[in-house]
């Protein structure tokens, strides 16, 4: 009773959530049969507003995501949620617990939640996540929230090209703020200091605001990332957060940046896929007798240097592709 890619596509457009779920599985498994459906879906995507939610573990991303989704549901907007968590690099397994903080949403057929393990991906994670975003977009979700731990480069790539990227922190020493400095200050469109019930929230806000003041490259007409205080557990500050998201979208539309961001996103997506394909082709070439394997032996015998060997592999790949 396996659906063909075309069946999945047809059903998905009709709002069949199981078809969406199955297609996402194919994408996660890097199953080639997903390609056909993704191809047909592409022109149906592009309508949703994509929100990234990143920050350190335990800062309250899932709780916030849940509250935000509730807010959108009250406005009768449908929501897709993708929760990406790290897989164990040793076993490939993952324990995905974000749903625990999203129980209030379960049972609402207009909210689709999917938990993803990062599966130790080398670049493949952002390709897979983008595919899943596009699936939920074509599935008709008005807002798509992608939650990911803002830990490494890979996770940052995932949220970098969302329309609105939210960086979540909480009071609790300089560590939090320090962590933000390393790379995600640049990608945040909105900053949230969650857990305002804890000591030190005003201080965390002040610190963040100061850092944002001195952020290089901020011009008059550019977007000034607001810092919003929330207490996700009690639902406080959610209206303000939603208002900031909608103000950011308004800014993107008016300034023409929405289109630019979309183009950037497409470019990044294309580059990721190319990287994946090219590196796989290169790896295969290195295994091939008479090609890479031979070159590697000649390198070991000091007959050819690594750079020249790489040029030969590139030439080989181009020639083969040209045929």
């Amino acid at each position: 009773m396996k659906d063909s890619p075309n069946d999945l596509y047809q059903k998905l457009l009709k709002g069949d959530r199981r078809a969406a779920a199955r297609l996402i599985t194919l994408v996660e498994n890097a199953d080639p049969s997903a390609r056909q459906a993704l191809k047909m879906l592409h022109r149906h995507s592009g309508g949703g507003h994509i929100v990234g939610m990143t920050g350190s573990p335990g800062s309250g991303k899932s709780t916030l995501t849940c509250r935000l989704a509730r807010h959108y549901r009250d406005e009768d907007r449908s929501v897709g949620i993708i929760c990406v968590d790290p897989s164990s690099p040793f076993t490939g397994g993952a324990l995905l617990g974000d749903r625990v903080r999203m129980q209030e949403l379960s049972g609402d057929p207009e909210v689709f939640i999917r938990s993803m393990g990062s599966r130790g991906a080398l670049g493949g994670l952002s390709v897979a996540t983008n595919d899943v975003i596009n699936i939920l977009d074509a599935f008709g979700k008005d807002v798509i929230i992608v939650e990911t731990v803002g830990a490494g480069q890979v996770e940052i790539e995932v949220v970098k090209y969302t329309h609105t990227c939210i960086v979540v922190t909480m009071p609790g020493g300089g560590d939090e703020i320090q962590a933000i400095k390393a790379g995600i200050l640049e990608i945040g469109d909105i900053f949230v200091v969650n857990k305002s019930d804890r000591d030190g929230a005003p201080r965390a806000v002040a610190d963040l605001e100061m850092m944002l003041e001195t952020k290089p490259g901020t011009s008059e007409e550019a977007w000034k990332p607001p810092v919003i205080t929330t207490m996700a557990l009690a639902g406080e500050g959610i209206d303000e957060l939603a208002a900031a998201i909608s103000a950011h979208r308004g800014f993107l539309v008016e300034s023409g940046l929405l289109e630019e961001k979309t183009v950037q996103r497409m470019r990044a997506e294309l580059l990721e896929i190319l990287n994946l394909k090219v590196s796989r082709a290169a790896e295969n070439a290195l295994e091939e007798e008479g090609v890479g394997a031979e070159l590697v032996r000649r390198m070991a015998d000091r007959e050819i240097d690594p750079h020249s060997a790489a040029d030969e592999v590139v030439e080989y790949l181009l020639k083969r592709a040209g045929r």
């Binding site: 959530r17 199981r18 779920a21 199955r22 996402i24 599985t25 897989s87 397994g93 993952a94 324990l95 995905l96 617990g97 749903r99 625990v100 903080r101 129980q103 379960s106 049972g107 057929p109 689709f112 939640i113 999917r114 938990s115 393990g117």
Partner: peptide
Amino acid sequence: EVIYSGLKQTPENLVEAALQED
């Protein structure tokens, strides 16, 4: 890959979640 629901799920909610998670 293990997805955990949390406590106190109704049969309806957990079946829906299991379907979304495929």
